[in-house]
Design a binder for these strands. Sequence first.
DNA 1: CCGAACATACCGACTGGTTAGTCTGGCGCT
DNA 2: AGCGCCAGACTAACCAGTCGGTATGTTCGG
Lengths: 197, 197
Amino acid sequence: MPRTTDGDGTPVPQRLLAAATRLFAEQGYDRTSVQEIVEAAGVTKGALYHYFGSKDDLLHEVYARVLRLQQERLDAFADADAPVEKRVRDAAADVVVTTIDNLDDASIFFRSMHQLSPEKNRQVRAERRRYHERFRALIEEGQRTGVFTKETPADLVVDYHFGSIHHLSTWYRPNGPLSPQEVADHLADLLLRALRP
Amino acid sequence: MPRTTDGDGTPVPQRLLAAATRLFAEQGYDRTSVQEIVEAAGVTKGALYHYFGSKDDLLHEVYARVLRLQQERLDAFADADAPVEKRVRDAAADVVVTTIDNLDDASIFFRSMHQLSPEKNRQVRAERRRYHERFRALIEEGQRTGVFTKETPADLVVDYHFGSIHHLSTWYRPNGPLSPQEVADHLADLLLRALRP
DNA sequence: CCGAACATACCGACTGGTTAGTCTGGCGCT
DNA sequence: AGCGCCAGACTAACCAGTCGGTATGTTCGG
């Protein structure tokens, strides 16, 4: 058997990605050396450059993982068979819980976009835009059917809510007084109250 | 006369700070070399290290400037003689306008905190906390007097709103469809509607 | 009113250290 | 006997900060 799972049981590429995620979140992308990553994963540079093309690729993988996960979840909630009000609420609360469950991913996501190569940056932006559009469409549906106020442009509403998601990794602490679900409920309440006609 | 204002009219320290601010916002702190900064300011390293103790100091100056400005403005609005509802609205809208007027500062502020030395980081956090407390006190006053709903903890409300401020530098474009004041009005509306009992 | 001593503002070559990525080679499986 | 998987030494580039040096004011005794 090749040594793909040397030492611990999980395969090397995943160990590398996990180590990179943690270190990027703790110290930032630029402050984390490739050497640190391979040491944390218990391998050497040879292994890293066997599986990934560059340090940049590693970061890109983190983005791809987050984007895929969030888009899947949003689609599921948005396509559900329920009144708009409930679909928005569920989607808005879910993204909060998911973000808190992966706080490392979140802090990397919002702090390190500009360290991606221009090409990968564009790709991530495009994916992110798809996500934004889907959410906006939901809000607009509510506005058209009269459940939500039309006073604020849907775009702005989406940016308003995702600002607070973005901000979570700055202030949320797992040992704080509120559980992820409680935070999610409060933030979803705020959004829905702001949308009330 | 010493050459403090060689070439262009503004003094060297301010030219350095301005160049650093722009470059930090464009490329990030770690990606910006001291050499780039001094070239953009039209001086050399000697000048920079004459006025600033380190590259880190330069970043700290940016933070100090932003914090001082925002705290002053918040205090002014919060201490005004008007109903809580109006004071909150004015303060919430003003921070949006001020942030948009200094978008570079804003992107640096939220992306580069963790690149500050531990000591300076603590200092900035402490200042930021004062700001947060002041704003929270305003919200709580409104909740006590029954103008705002008590359903959401004031702390969370503050983080919710400042998440969107934080996020502004990600999506706002000066040549977009909305003026800073329009964005500010919309965001303040969203906040006040979310607080409506 | 003058000039020596001092102070301020800056220049730019240099240093010691770090970094991403490469490359050669070898181990173990099929 | 070949190939996927990986080790680890190596390289070329870069970077923050230092330091001796110079040019331009300012102060103050005589």
